[in-house]
Design a protein around this nucleic acid. Structure first.
Lengths: 203, 203
DNA sequence: AACTGGAGACGGGACGCCCCGTTCCCTTCC
DNA sequence: GGAAGGGAACGGGGCGTCCCGTCTCCAGTT
């Protein structure tokens, strides 16, 4: 997620390592300030100057590590999305586990505003969009692929399901609630969507 | 959709309004410039100054008729969404008719960028969000209500369907394609979604 | 019917403020 | 000595508002 995470660890060949490491305190303060700013100002009025003031950080530090503002917002938002372990046996529970981070994050504090801001960033900036789709691929598409493959093998669902279409059906209502309704997800949202997807994929 | 349409006709009946009317040429030029700007700059970098330059209009004229920028973007976008007459007999066709304006608009020219910009405006500004949800209510929810009620009476679908949930299911994938995938809708999208909704509502 | 004056919308320019992204300076820590 | 940090300042540009001179329409007068 971070834009420039690679450190020049060129200590090989008798090269002396030098210089301080990246300040974790500053990084955390900037991301927290980003969440506050997204909540207070949204995406269009989002101000990097304001971030610097809130976090008592230099703009140079911000631009050094996040050349693109959209990616900074995405990193600030994905921190709120804690992936869960889908270890249950009930298919509905296992699929719902993939959505639970969204349900939990949007229902906690200003999480829905932070998430909405980050989604607008992903929609507005091409590069941030790619970053976000990659996150979704790792945290939603890939786990769902495993679950559906297993269910298909057990003949609990059709064998000819379309994976991308399934991801689309499962996750789309999140965007509707978050971006169009501008509201958090309802309690029980994840299980409701999981049940619906399985009904659609029924053999 | 227009923000300030009412004229202050002074209280006394003998008082009549005078002066020139609103310039339709200027209005059209501003909305066209808005579409160009949304395509070129997106939402966060959207510039009202740029609109004034593109449209050879005064900023005062812009702010007089659109005090909120988001509503101006929505009006520029909804112009591209031509409602169709759902007069067919096939249930799939009738429901697909509700989505066709989106499919057509996003597949024509820069329509997908304009629509995406307007949707971000609706997500970012509270007032624009209400405007957009009202548009959806008139152009999607209300017609769908009639269609579903008729189908339920004919026992083609369940009688206990939830209208808001149905609207959500029908339209959500539009947001996924437009905002997350940042792409136009595929050819045949509308019929595919309509077929899926009817399958879910099957008795 | 022709004239006149007021009201309102228009394009254009200017304002003070803030934000953008970059650059420089100086301190701190490895 | 080198790299990362905070802070200040830069020129460029957008923000929303205000003012100006012009144009157009309409009402009442001539």
């Amino acid at each position: 997620m971070a834009d420039a995470e690679e450190k020049p660890t060129k200590k090989k060949a008798t090269r002396r390592r030098q210089g301080p490491r990246r300040s974790e305190a500053s990084r955390a303060a900037i991301l927290e300030a980003t969440r506050e700013e997204l909540t207070a100002s949204g995406w269009r009025k989002f101000s990097v100057d304001s971030i610097a003031r809130r976090a008592h950080a230099s703009k140079q530090t911000i631009y050094r590590w996040w050349p693109a503002t959209g990616n900074m917002c995405l990193e600030a938002a994905t921190t709120l999305l804690q992936p869960l372990d889908a270890s249950g046996t009930d298919p509905v529970d296992r699929i719902a586990t993939l959505l639970m981070p969204f349900e939990t994050a949007t229902r906690s504090g200003n999480g829905h505003a932070v998430l909405r801001g980050a989604m607008m960033a992903a929609a507005d900036e091409k590069e941030a969009g790619e970053t976000w789709r990659n996150w979704m691929k790792s945290n939603v598409r890939a786990p769902l692929r495993l679950i559906l493959a297993e269910l298909a093998a057990k003949k609990r669902i059709r064998r000819d399901y379309d994976l991308d279409e399934s991801v689309n059906l499962l996750i789309s209502p999140v965007w509707h609630n978050l971006l169009i309704m501008r509201a958090p997800l309802k309690n029980g949202f994840s299980h409701e969507q999981a049940r619906r997807l399985l009904r659609l994929l029924a053999p």
